[in-house]
Design a protein around this nucleic acid. Structure first.
Lengths: 345, 345
DNA sequence: CTGTTAGCGCGTTCAC
DNA sequence: GTGAACGCGCTAACAG
């Protein structure tokens, strides 16, 4: 059905073939198919019918090459499986769809090597932009190809010093302030810990520092033993918490670096038979899953979906990638019951 | 730095420019850059240095156009945020990376309209293949462009009758058998329900049918009131369960259509103060989150990551998209405590 | 309104 | 070894 009658190469139909079949010019076909009003309505319809009959399909990549237009935005992340990243991807994709851009996924597993590879490939593919949650330990020089290629890029969550790339981050000071304030004000907590998150990652350091500051300000004691960094997923948090439980007394309150961390922590506590009331748990992110834990998480929401949309906007609006850090999204506290607050009616 | 000295268009460097700069031919540059042994080693190095100096970057999309090679595989799904989908994406991406292919994300939100749109765009972009979890109610004719364009495609989870497309699905009979067997054999259950999942979706119907069959076979009573379909996410399951709890007695055992459903159900039960021992909960999927609920889910794992990898393999190996349904992955039961089994040491 | 001519940036024969 | 010429599929500029 799609093989040439003469038995030659079974290629896909091209505009030229449509034109030949109709005995008209190639450019007429091009104009007709794009509905340019320059072409007589009747001609246009004949062209469209013939195109459909021959099974012609528009080759957008050829068109893009010609117009040096791009349709791909890379999303380079350590782990797609992370629900936070999932919500970012959704927001980004929604925003890009409005500009007929696609998001292409790239996993780095926090390996700088594969990160360099995928960024290179994405640049070669002429992506119109990149959203990057950098692999751990990424230095500015690891991102040099990016700058040299003049590909617009946005960093997310983790900053890369001297990279000159804009960062879509969170207002860590405010996040931690909201959390500690709640702990102090409504729960009268006098001792607390900051649990989880990758020590090497920017957000962890910023939040931990903010946490220490807030504690001092409010004269709350820091439960040092539980100020433990961990891997980013629930399983890692679970493992860390489990060890700690066997060795150290549980503080009366814990602020978790993310909802994922809190999920792992809760699992460990439950498994050890610790009643959930005995420790007030707060976390950060506000992913969908945070509403479905037992108990549901009181969390400082940062709206990852919105972060995704924002990075899309930033990418598509500033062709130059010089730093122009947008203001972080406004975090807000969602009170549920993991902190000890009563459930709502 | 990247603007022309004469002040004209600040275009990106091309191979031609590299050639001119060196006073050699364009094809020499091309051959040199790709390390073809036809070129003198010395020449090659000079070319590479000059290329780097000028900030030249290989334009893979131009190359692909020339060789009519493709590098994109579309992943068309109702909701990227679904953790099951996330694990599929990870597996797919891992498999495709080996063949230097990228996965591009497309969300349909279960809308056939936007599904048609994105599939169309993906075909126009000359994707080398598509992995599709079809939107609800997708008919074969909604996928006609796909067949006509001869783009290889794989369906996942939800079948589309008469589409002629291969399906990467789950062995629903076996899944349900494993679950019910466990319920009957180790927990001596005499009444049970199948809860959650979209009524219109293939897996729901298949599993529900298999469930009914197994119950009859084992003389287990079906708790009709709780045989309720729901939306696919925890929130929907939670809402449905909450209503049911107020109206109907809780059966002694519930098989959930997915881990996500179980998560919502558990939330509703906990909120209503139902002790978790009073109802044996089993679910299906085996996503990472299933190990972190309270209580942890006993679930029939289907390995979504593996499904992703398999679909990648299928796409890249069978250029023709005629049905050749691979055998479903072998499901296996992961026993945790939501069913009432004791926790492991 | 339609057709002609030149590219977009690269890969691939062929001759030299 | 090297270089000219052509093609990929489409769009843009200018004719007519």
């Amino acid at each position: 059905m799609k093989t040439d009658p003469d038995g030659s190469a079974p290629r896909v139909t091209t505009m030229q073939q449509v034109a030949d079949e109709l005995g008209i010019s190639l450019s007429t076909v091009s104009l007709a198919l794009r509905g340019k009003p320059v072409i007589a309505k009747e001609t246009r319809e004949r062209v469209q019918q013939e195109a459909k009959r021959l099974g012609y399909v528009y080759n957008r990549s050829a068109a893009n090459l010609r117009q040096s237009r791009r349709t791909l935005v890379g999303l380079v992340v350590p782990d797609i499986t992370n629900p936070f990243v999932g919500e970012v991807a959704l927001g980004l994709q929604a925003n890009l769809a409005e500009h007929s851009q696609f998001v292409v996924l790239a996993n780095t597993q926090d390996s700088i090597g594969t990160q360099t590879e995928v960024i290179g490939s994405l640049i070669e593919e002429r992506a119109s932009g990149l959203v990057i949650i950098p692999a751990l330990g990424t230095r500015a020089e690891d991102l040099r190809l990016l700058r040299d290629s003049a590909t617009p890029a946005v960093l997310m969550n983790r900053e890369v010093p001297d990279s000159g790339l804009p960062l879509i981050g969170t207002d860590d000071r405010e996040i931690v302030r909201l959390a500690v304030e709640h702990l102090a004000t409504v729960h009268g907590i006098v001792e607390a810990a900051y649990f989880g998150g990758l020590r090497e990652a920017g957000p962890h350091q910023a939040r931990k520092a903010a946490f220490d500051l807030e504690l001092r300000k409010r004269q709350i004691h820091s439960a040092e033993a539980w100020n433990q960094p961990t891997g980013p997923n629930p399983a890692a948090a679970y493992a860390a918490a489990r060890s700690l439980l066997h060795a150290e007394p549980l503080p009366p309150a814990i602020l978790c670096h993310s909802d994922s961390i809190a999920i792992g922590l809760i699992r460990a506590l439950d498994e050890a038979g610790v009643p959930s009331r005995s420790c007030a748990i707060l976390s950060i992110d506000g992913i969908a899953a945070s509403a479905m834990t037992t108990p549901p998480l009181t969390t400082v929401a940062v709206d990852p979906g919105h972060m995704g949309r924002r990075s899309g906007r930033l990418l598509l609006h500033s062709p130059d990638h010089d730093a122009e850090p947008e203001e972080p999204a406004r975090p807000h506290l969602i009170v549920r019951t993991s902190c000890g607050c009563p459930a709502e009616a």
